[in-house]
């Protein structure tokens, strides 16, 4: 039986955006013109994990799901260029990118149910905007599926998924029956670059677009968990004392003396 993998991929502002270009206006992060969107890095690694499974198991089908508004098609199509088969955009004016994950989870759950035959949901361990790290958990909990987090390797064997999890001082091998949710970490390794064939192929694939109505959900009836009170740039909390010397080595020696004075060493 063919394996159907869903990869959840989020379009985020490039986390490498220099701090100087990062602006907050009215409790939202304002997208400056030089802040390009990208696919969340950990989600690209989830795509990579799916492609490795596809290479091992013939007939694997990879559907990419993305929730949001204002998609940049050339960006969000990158997983297709890497080798995924389909792209479904959950796109609706109500699907704003807020800190509250309740509607996101409701929409993604509805989409997985609508697809119907999903064996495995893969996602990045967290998104580089809100760093919530909980949409996959919410999906597993709502669907009643098992979940394994922070994977550096994912293997499917029959109806079992085997996951190597990253621990702070080692690793853990866990397994669960399908259908299941797995989140992927950077230790999986770099995601592959799309090749020319992949890029051309992705151009020909039109994404499927599902609105809230298509998903059978009523956004206004999904109670939020949070209300944003404020979003601010963190204040620098320390006065920095710059240590200088005649040359770099001298500065190094003075640093040692200064730390000793402060009883830090």
């Amino acid at each position: 039986m063919a394996l159907h993998i869903v990869v959840m991929a989020k379009q985020v502002l490039d986390p490498e955006t220099p701090l100087s270009a990062f602006r907050i206006e009215g409790n939202r992060v304002a997208a400056a013109s030089n802040m390009a969107p990208v696919v969340n890095g950990f989600d690209e690694q989830a795509v990579e994990a799916a492609l490795r499974i596809k290479e091992a198991i013939d007939g694997t089908h990879i559907t990419v799901l993305s929730y949001g508004t204002g998609f940049a098609l050339d960006v969000i199509k990158k997983p297709l260029a890497m080798g995924a088969d389909d792209l479904v955009l959950l796109q609706d004016p109500a699907f704003e990118n807020t800190i509250d994950p309740m509607l996101t989870v409701a929409a993604l759950v509805a989409a997985v149910r609508k697809l119907g035959d999903v064996d495995l949901v893969l996602a990045g361990r967290q998104a580089s905007d809100w760093d919530n790290a909980q949409v996959p958990a919410g999906i597993a909990e709502t669907l009643g599926w098992p979940i394994a987090t922070i994977a550096k390797a994912v293997e499917v064997d029959g109806t079992t998924v085997r996951v190597q999890r990253v621990l702070p001082d080692g690793h853990e091998l866990v397994e669960a029956g399908l259908s299941a949710v797995v989140t992927v970490s950077n230790e999986l390794g770099a995601p592959r670059y799309p090749n020319m064939r992949g890029i051309m192929g992705a151009r020909r694939i039109q994404p499927t677009v599902w609105s809230a109505v298509d998903l059978g959900i009523e956004p206004a009836s999904v109670a939020p968990a949070f209300e944003m009170v404020s979003l601010t740039k963190p204040e620098s909390r320390v006065e920095t004392e710059m240590i200088t010397g005649e040359d770099d080595a001298d500065a190094g020696r003075k640093l040692a003396l200064r730390l000793r004075e402060e009883h830090l060493v």
């Binding site: 320390v238 920095t240 200088t244 770099d248 190094g252 020696r253 003396l257 000793r260």
Partner: peptide, 27 residues
């Protein structure tokens, strides 16, 4: 440097050995 209590702007390869040597003497 924004979060640092002490900062040295320089080439670590030159700063670090002198820093370590001075610490050796102090400690």
């Amino acid at each position: 440097f924004k979060d640092a209590r002490f900062g040295v702007i320089g080439d670590w390869a030159k700063v670090l050995p002198a820093f370590a040597e001075q610490l050796h003497e102090l400690l």
